[in-house]
Amino acid sequence: MKLTTGQISSAAPLTQLLYKSNKSLYRLIYLPLPGITKLYWSGNAMSIIPTIDEKAAANSAKDYLKQFKGWQLVSLRLDDNKPRATAQAQRENVKAMFELQERQNIIKAISKDDQASGIILDQRFIRQHSTKRTLAELTAKHHSITEDNFYHRQHKALLMAYYLIPTDQVKLVRCE
């Protein structure tokens, strides 16, 4: 079976791809997802295997993890000495705590699979340490990674994080 690829146009919300085989013309209608730039299909079955734009996915994961500091500041706004906070302030605090926990859960999940990747993400994007300080932390945890290999590992870790980022379907619901 020969795999054929079609580029997805991001200009239209609905994309139609035409695939011509020896005897037939197929039309594939596809609703694009964020980060997916190509579709692959083979033969008459038209099996679809979406792929992502790795650079955009890594940047998206990087931005998501870097938001940790902002959510941390929001969570600190509610002071324990002021028990009479407004309902809005309490909702913001709950949302911030949820967002912080989501980012920490992503790091923990990656650390279970690949400890070095978890350390890289935690040090670089949660704690915002430099590359040299992160390499020192990796060395202290008995992971020997060169500076040249570090950026490749960081990119790999960001792609792992991208797949764990919750989508828009995840909502915080207040239970009473």
Rank of each mutant, 00 (worst) to 15 (best):
M1P: 09
L3T: 11
L3Q: 15
G6M: 10
P13M: 04
L14S: 14
L18P: 03
L18I: 13
L18G: 03
K20I: 12
N22K: 13
S24K: 07
Y26Q: 11
Y26C: 09
R27T: 15
I29D: 08
Y30M: 05
L31D: 14
L31R: 15
I36F: 10
T37P: 00
S42A: 13
N44I: 14
A45M: 10
M46S: 08
P50M: 13
P50T: 13
E54Y: 02
A56S: 07
A58I: 02
N59D: 07
N59K: 10
K66T: 10
K66D: 07
Q67L: 10
G70V: 01
W71S: 05
S75N: 11
L76F: 07
L78P: 02
D80A: 13
A87H: 08
E92D: 01
E92W: 04
N93H: 15
V94G: 06
V94W: 03
K95C: 03
M97I: 08
F98Q: 14
Q101L: 14
Q104S: 12
N105G: 02
I107M: 07
I110A: 01
S111C: 03
D113N: 02
Q115K: 11
L121F: 02
D122P: 06
T131H: 09
R133V: 12
T134N: 04
E137G: 00
L138Q: 06
T139G: 05
A140N: 12
H143E: 06
S144F: 11
I145H: 08
T146H: 02
D148G: 13
N149G: 09
F150P: 04
Y151I: 06
H152F: 01
R153K: 14
Q154C: 05
K156M: 01
A157L: 04
A157M: 04
A157Y: 01
L158G: 00
L158E: 05
L158R: 06
I165R: 00
T167F: 00
T167A: 07
T167W: 02
V173S: 03
